[in-house]
């Protein structure tokens, strides 16, 4: 049987800037969060009725709390320096994945409701109403940003799309349109202690297995302690280290280094996670809560 033919993209030596294909990444965006994951984080479970007012108020609140948001919204001159810098654009050719165009989804709304020019001459300055279509675009395109900040390196004013994406996601959460992946994971991190939701017995078991395996392979009694009070070092690691290849090799390595050094150390089942998804949804408060959990674990142990 002949192998199925695939259209394999060629990797050029230099990056080629694709031609624009407007709307090619138009879509529903990632899975939306539901009541169960929204409520515990303090966000409404579904799109609130007066979402428009709530959203606009939130934009005002965010821009008064974050200088980045205010300055970045005002400063862009649309020079185009960032237009070919985003890997989401280079990979998808959708013009709304150009950093400036992504920000403009937010900026056009900001201009419409917060600036003189946008209030009185919306067409002239490209200001747009916040309507259902715009919110859908927000949800879709602000979740096509990985907050890598590559664009901000190249921007002559250092405008950082990540800050705008974070702001947009927080606005979306506030009006009840959350993203399932992030919000469900935050729920787990804040209840169970890690993003994967591995409970204490599972962690303990995993670590015991690991000890056996390492002893077998290296002949040294390397320990992987959990919740050991009074240890000198509290190790916080991403939860992928507990199960995924090759991440687990990292955890094995930490254990070996500590064993060789002869220091006492421990993992915590209360806060076993180092990755803080609060950053992704742009919520300072939730980011802080996740960090406080680690602090509490450290104090308790």
């Amino acid at each position: 049987m002949a192998a199925k033919e695939f259209d394999i993209p060629k990797l050029p030596t230099y990056i080629e800037i694709p031609e624009l294909k407007p709307g090619i990444m138009q879509g529903e965006g990632p899975f939306k969060s539901i009541d169960e994951f929204q409520k515990p984080l303090g966000f409404p479970g579904e799109k609130v009725d007066n979402w428009k007012e709530v959203a606009i108020e939130k934009i005002g609140d965010l821009k008064s709390k974050y200088r980045s948001v205010q300055v970045f919204l005002d400063s862009c001159v649309k020079c185009g320096a960032c237009t070919d810098k985003c890997h989401y654009f280079l990979g998808s050719s959708d013009p709304k994945n150009m950093p400036v165009a992504r920000q403009d989804l937010f900026r056009s709304v900001y201009r419409r409701y917060f600036t003189f020019a946008g209030k009185h001459f919306p067409k002239l300055v490209g200001a747009k109403d916040l309507d259902d279509e715009m919110i859908d675009d927000w949800y879709n395109y602000f979740h096509q940003c990985s907050q890598c900040r590559r664009c901000s390196v190249f921007c002559p004013y250092g405008i950082d799309t990540a800050e705008i994406s974070m702001a947009a996601r927080e606005v979306l959460d506030t009006i009840g349109i959350g993203q399932k992946y992030c919000n469900q994971i935050l729920g787990k991190a804040l209840t169970v202690g890690n993003n994967l939701g591995l409970p204490e017995p599972a962690l303990k078991d995993t670590l015991l297995d690991l000890e056996e395996e390492v002893e077998e392979d290296f002949g040294a009694p390397v320990k992987y302690p959990l919740d050991q009070k009074g240890a000198e070092i509290l190790l916080i690691t991403p939860s992928a280290d507990f199960f995924a290849e090759p991440h687990i090799d990292g955890l094995i390595g930490y254990g070996k280094v500590f064993y060789q050094d002869g220091v006492t150390w421990t993992l915590s089942s209360y806060a076993s996670e180092g990755a803080n998804f609060g950053m992704f949804i742009g919520s300072y408060d939730i980011m802080r809560k996740a960090a406080l959990r680690i602090r509490k674990a450290a104090l308790d142990l």
Partner: peptide, 20 residues
Amino acid sequence: AIFPISKLLHVPGIFFSPTR
């Protein structure tokens, strides 16, 4: 006159840009 209400705000903006 349009300096404070337009993209010409990039002039003060750069000095306040947190990334810079």
